[in-house]
Amino acid sequence: SKDAAQYVYDEAQKGVTQVTVNGVTFKFDNWQKLLKYAQKLLN
Rank of each mutant, 00 (worst) to 15 (best):
residue 16 V to R: 04
residue 41 L to K: 01
residue 17 T to Q: 06
residue 41 L to S: 00
residue 3 D to N: 04
residue 4 A to E: 08
residue 10 D to E: 12
residue 7 Y to V: 10
residue 6 Q to S: 02
residue 16 V to D: 02
residue 35 L to K: 01
residue 8 V to W: 14
residue 10 D to S: 06
residue 25 T to G: 05
residue 34 L to K: 00
residue 31 W to M: 05
residue 1 S to Q: 07
residue 1 S to I: 13
residue 27 K to I: 15
residue 39 Q to E: 05
residue 6 Q to E: 12
residue 40 K to L: 06
residue 9 Y to N: 08
residue 39 Q to A: 04
residue 21 V to E: 07
residue 18 Q to L: 11
residue 31 W to V: 03
residue 22 N to Q: 09
residue 13 Q to K: 05
residue 3 D to K: 00
residue 35 L to T: 01
residue 22 N to P: 07
residue 27 K to D: 11
residue 32 Q to F: 12
residue 11 E to P: 10
residue 15 G to Q: 06
residue 19 V to P: 03
residue 1 S to G: 12
residue 15 G to N: 08
residue 7 Y to S: 14
residue 23 G to R: 06
residue 29 D to I: 14
residue 5 A to G: 07
residue 5 A to P: 14
residue 16 V to F: 10
residue 10 D to H: 06
residue 18 Q to D: 04
residue 38 A to P: 01
residue 22 N to L: 10
residue 27 K to R: 12
residue 17 T to A: 06
residue 2 K to G: 14
residue 33 K to S: 08
residue 19 V to N: 02
residue 26 F to K: 03
residue 16 V to T: 04
residue 35 L to R: 00
residue 4 A to Y: 09
residue 1 S to M: 11
residue 4 A to H: 09
residue 26 F to V: 04
residue 4 A to R: 01
residue 12 A to E: 07
residue 17 T to R: 01
residue 20 T to G: 05
residue 34 L to F: 02
residue 14 K to V: 13
residue 20 T to H: 12
residue 37 Y to F: 13
residue 30 N to Y: 09
residue 42 L to G: 01
residue 43 N to W: 12
residue 7 Y to I: 13
residue 25 T to W: 09
residue 30 N to K: 04
residue 15 G to V: 12
residue 22 N to E: 05
residue 41 L to D: 00
residue 26 F to W: 08
residue 12 A to N: 08
residue 6 Q to A: 04
residue 41 L to F: 04
residue 8 V to M: 09
residue 39 Q to L: 11
residue 19 V to G: 05
residue 32 Q to S: 03
residue 42 L to V: 02
residue 11 E to I: 12
residue 13 Q to N: 11
residue 25 T to E: 03
residue 21 V to M: 09
residue 26 F to A: 03
residue 10 D to K: 03
residue 4 A to L: 11
residue 35 L to F: 05
residue 4 A to G: 03
residue 34 L to Q: 00
residue 16 V to M: 03
residue 1 S to N: 13
residue 3 D to M: 03
residue 20 T to Y: 03
residue 10 D to M: 14
residue 21 V to I: 14
residue 2 K to Y: 03
residue 40 K to M: 13
residue 4 A to V: 05
residue 12 A to D: 07
residue 14 K to T: 10
residue 28 F to N: 02
residue 35 L to S: 00
residue 29 D to S: 12
residue 10 D to T: 11
residue 14 K to H: 11
residue 41 L to G: 00
residue 26 F to R: 05
residue 28 F to M: 06
residue 32 Q to D: 08
residue 7 Y to T: 15
residue 37 Y to C: 12
residue 14 K to A: 13
residue 20 T to S: 11
residue 40 K to R: 03
residue 39 Q to G: 03
residue 40 K to Y: 07
residue 18 Q to V: 10
residue 31 W to F: 07
residue 18 Q to R: 02
residue 5 A to H: 03
residue 37 Y to P: 00
residue 37 Y to R: 02
residue 25 T to I: 10
residue 33 K to T: 10
residue 1 S to Y: 13
residue 31 W to E: 01
residue 32 Q to W: 12
residue 17 T to D: 06
residue 20 T to P: 03
residue 17 T to G: 05
residue 41 L to P: 00
residue 16 V to Y: 07
residue 35 L to Q: 01
residue 4 A to I: 08
residue 1 S to V: 12
residue 17 T to I: 13
residue 32 Q to P: 03
residue 36 K to R: 04
residue 26 F to H: 09
residue 2 K to R: 05
residue 15 G to I: 15
residue 5 A to D: 10
residue 12 A to L: 12
residue 34 L to H: 00
residue 23 G to Y: 12
residue 38 A to D: 00
residue 34 L to D: 00
residue 21 V to R: 01
residue 24 V to E: 04
residue 7 Y to R: 05
residue 22 N to M: 15
residue 10 D to P: 05
residue 33 K to F: 08
residue 3 D to F: 08
residue 33 K to N: 11
residue 15 G to H: 12
residue 23 G to Q: 05
residue 36 K to C: 13
residue 5 A to W: 14
residue 18 Q to T: 07
residue 26 F to S: 02
residue 8 V to K: 10
residue 30 N to A: 11
residue 9 Y to P: 11
residue 36 K to I: 09
residue 33 K to I: 08
residue 25 T to F: 14
residue 4 A to F: 13
residue 4 A to S: 09
residue 8 V to Y: 14
residue 40 K to S: 08
residue 19 V to I: 11
residue 31 W to D: 00
residue 18 Q to A: 07
residue 24 V to R: 02
residue 2 K to W: 13
residue 31 W to N: 00
residue 12 A to H: 06
residue 33 K to C: 10
residue 28 F to G: 01
residue 24 V to T: 04
residue 13 Q to D: 12
residue 15 G to M: 12
residue 9 Y to W: 14
residue 43 N to F: 10
residue 41 L to Y: 02
residue 4 A to K: 08
residue 37 Y to W: 11
residue 43 N to Q: 09
residue 35 L to Y: 02
residue 27 K to N: 15
residue 19 V to R: 01
residue 16 V to C: 12
residue 6 Q to H: 09
residue 9 Y to K: 01
residue 31 W to G: 00
residue 7 Y to F: 11
residue 18 Q to N: 08
residue 22 N to H: 09
residue 21 V to G: 02
residue 23 G to K: 05
residue 15 G to C: 15
residue 42 L to P: 00
residue 16 V to G: 06
residue 39 Q to N: 03
residue 23 G to V: 15
residue 26 F to G: 01
residue 27 K to L: 15
residue 15 G to W: 15
residue 5 A to E: 06
residue 5 A to N: 09
residue 3 D to Q: 04
residue 38 A to Y: 06
residue 7 Y to P: 15
residue 26 F to L: 13
residue 29 D to E: 07
residue 25 T to D: 07
residue 7 Y to A: 14
residue 38 A to E: 00
residue 29 D to A: 10
residue 39 Q to K: 03
residue 33 K to D: 14
residue 37 Y to I: 05
residue 31 W to P: 00
residue 37 Y to V: 04
residue 28 F to A: 03
residue 43 N to Y: 04
residue 42 L to K: 01
residue 17 T to L: 14
residue 13 Q to W: 13
residue 23 G to C: 14
residue 29 D to F: 14
residue 33 K to M: 07
residue 38 A to N: 00
residue 26 F to C: 15
residue 33 K to Y: 05
residue 19 V to K: 02
residue 25 T to P: 12
residue 8 V to Q: 13
residue 12 A to P: 08
residue 20 T to A: 06
residue 2 K to C: 15
residue 29 D to H: 11
residue 32 Q to R: 04
residue 20 T to F: 08
residue 12 A to V: 09
residue 12 A to W: 11
residue 8 V to A: 11
residue 12 A to K: 03
residue 43 N to V: 01
residue 21 V to F: 08
residue 12 A to Y: 06
residue 39 Q to H: 03
residue 18 Q to H: 08
residue 4 A to N: 07
residue 37 Y to T: 05
residue 24 V to C: 15
residue 36 K to L: 07
residue 30 N to W: 14
residue 43 N to H: 04
residue 7 Y to M: 11
